[in-house]
Amino acid sequence: MAQAELAVKTLDEQEMLRLFHEMVLVRRLEEEAARLYQQGKIGGFLHLYIGQEAVSAGVLSVRLPKDRVLTAYRDHGVAIGCGIEAKVVMAELLGKATGAAKGKGGSMHLADIRKNFWGGYAIVGGHLPLAVGMALADQYRGDDAVTICLFGDGATNIGYFHESMNLSMVWKLPLLWICENNKYGMGTSVERSSAVMEMKQKAEGYAMPNSSVNGMDVLAVRAAAQDALGTVRESGTPYFLEIVTYRYRGHSMGDPERYRDSEEIERWRKDDPITVYRSQLIADGHFNAAALAEQEARVEQDIQEAIEFAESSPDPAPSDLYSDIYTES
């Protein structure tokens, strides 16, 4: 591996622009996915990441290739952040053989072992114990990789969370736990489902170092994640980072959203991570509006290519029904 790949990219203008491009890409990917879902081209459940783009873009901009990543079922942004191409994500949403899980996983089960992205998992909290095991494997072999495990606020109420927080501290594992607090577990708000309002308080019970950051500010997320990763890499022990964010769309496409009013969504939209970042880049004199518009035009092209690729890709063959049940027959 080249030395350049072993170091975190410095936050120069190129990197600033890349972050902008990635957030816009994720947003547009999600908007197009919603459209294709309405057309019946995407089946099953579709959980959109719109509003939370700064989380995946910020966190994954500072991970090293050797760091493992796992997340929950709202996984499109994380997949892009890990380096999976938009067309491969889109192909999976359409169930195609060229998709990130060969059409067998769908929206909730994107993964790419070559990118060290160990998957999206659709059982709330179910991937936290997997992260414990992966970090254990790295620790056992003496590798200095960090396992980054993202999950929602909803997952902090389930037993898996507490079993995993506890054991990761008992075994002092190189784990970065990232709680994406988007204020709702499906349609039930944090206020109605959690005994504490700050998710990081739950790390306190396990004597785990922790902090929180505004998840609508991509540079703040990036800095917080870099600090947290550095702490884990140095200490070899877990850290809990709460990232406060918000999803504009429903839990999934079939969500009637009776649990919140449109004013609440509008309040959050004022802090929209892409809008805020765009203004910031212009105000700080890094880029003018035209340069950013050019990025957005590039994204449009990427998205159209992704859709064309996905739609023209073949379905899995009938014989694939029986492939990969076991590694050997």
């Binding site: 114990p129 414990v132 095991g133 079993e163």
Partner: peptide
């Protein structure tokens, strides 16, 4: 390191074993 006592918490025992297996142990 190789013979690891765990808390009484079967979810994370099997889950961690799954994860460690995925990661090459």
């Amino acid at each position: 390191e190789r013979v690891r006592d765990t808390p009484i918490a079967e979810g994370v025992i099997v889950g961690a074993a799954n994860g460690a297996a995925m990661a090459g142990l």
